[in-house]
């Protein structure tokens, strides 16, 4: 019997139910794990996602044909059970479970294990085949608890304020920025770039509580907001947009900041090691808890991670996808680095 899921040039495909998961080419029916641009693309005939991911999808993709499911709710299509389960990556993100006649697959999209207080926490789903990312699939990546990173960022904010400079924190505008927002606690207001504020508005409208922010407008002057911190996409920090804040320091918040060489290349003052992807122990724990024997490794350190899994006794292989820019330059792509 053919496997329930196969890997096609358009994306991950279920022939039985005739639908794709996070396809990168236009198809008729798409299941979407979450709203990031490499997973949710324009041009699909019909979309299915979680109710929590829907507002961001509509914000990004406009007027699309979209149905939603709640986490754990099951529908059936040509005998295939379809359900969405929390992936903990960003608010509304999901692992997608497909099951037919006792064969169960889970496509996990992007995920992290730690509860960030904003996204519904990751929940392992038993399956036979698990499709996993490997963005940080190297044993040098090991995250510290979120509270510890929050402490570092807030100490930096306070220190900058005491020295009269403006801290500028660079983070991807969907997910990472809101996670940081919920962690910020300092001597002044939080100023936000338009790209970040756009997502804030969407999430607030769907009932997610975020701290108060002050959107930066063309008239905003740094001097009018003493003690403020600025939250912006990484690409904005080196631009003329940033100059209005006068003397400033830049910080980047990303898992890549664990590596000193990458941190120095970004030429920021500070790097905070915080990621919405699983670290090495997290990946291994997630994989173990699925009980799956077959692990399909996508975007990241695919060759290294799959070899390790194979030697450790799993039936692991590499799947070429167009998520996260494949094996590409993720640490150096400005916004992708923020997304990590």
């Amino acid at each position: 019997m053919a496997p329930l899921l196969t890997f096609r040039p358009e994306g991950i495909y279920c022939a039985r139910a005739d639908l794709f998961i996070d396809p990168w080419r236009p198809v008729a029916r798409a299941l979407i794990t979450h709203g990031h641009a490499d997973h949710a693309r324009a041009g699909m005939g019909h979309y299915l996602a979680t109710n929590l991911a829907a507002p961001v999808l509509r914000h990004r993709l406009g007027d699309i044909s979209l149905d939603t499911l709640r986490y754990g709710e099951t529908i059936t299509r040509n005998g295939v059970e379809i359900s969405f389960h929390p992936a903990g990556h960003v608010p509304g993100s999901a692992q997608i479970r497909l099951s037919y006649k006792g064969e169960t697959w889970v496509a996990s999209g992007d995920y992290k294990i730690e509860d960030d207080g904003l996204s519904t926490p990751f929940a392992p789903v038993r399956c036979h085949h698990f499709i996993t990312e490997s963005t940080f699939g190297l044993p040098v990546f090991r995250w510290q608890p979120q509270a510890q990173i929050a402490h570092q960022i807030n100490a930096w904010w306070a220190d900058c304020a005491a020295r009269g400079v403006t801290p500028m924190l660079g983070a991807y505008s969907l997910g990472k920025a809101q996670r940081l927002l919920s962690l910020l606690d300092g001597p002044g207001p939080i100023l936000t770039h338009g790209a970040v504020e756009g997502t804030n508005a969407v999430l607030r409208a769907q009932g997610i509580a975020l701290p108060d922010t002050v959107p930066v407008t063309p008239d905003t002057k740094g001097k009018e907001h003493p003690g403020a911190i600025v939250l912006a996409p990484p690409s904005a920090l080196g631009s003329t947009w940033a100059r209005r804040f006068g003397p400033r320091e830049t910080g980047f918040a990303s898992g890549w900041m664990a590596v000193r060489g990458i941190r120095r290349r970004r030429a920021g003052d500070r790097g905070f090691v915080i990621s919405d992807h699983a670290d090495w122990p997290g990946l291994l724990r997630a994989i173990t808890e699925t009980g799956a024997e077959n692990i399909h490794v996508t975007h990241g350190y695919t060759d290294i991670f799959s070899r390790y899994l194979s030697e450790a006794g799993w039936n692991a292989d590499i799947v070429k996808t167009e998520f996260g820019g494949d094996d590409d330059d993720i640490p150096d792509t400005q916004d992708a680095a923020g997304a990590a």
């Binding site: 190297l138 044993p139 040098v140 990546f141 090991r142 664990a258 590596v259 000193r260 060489g261 350190y301 290294i304």
Partner: peptide
Amino acid sequence: EDAYPIVGDLAETIALI
């Protein structure tokens, strides 16, 4: 050995691993 060139520094690779 595979992680080392990605980190780019032996002392750091050991410290992290």
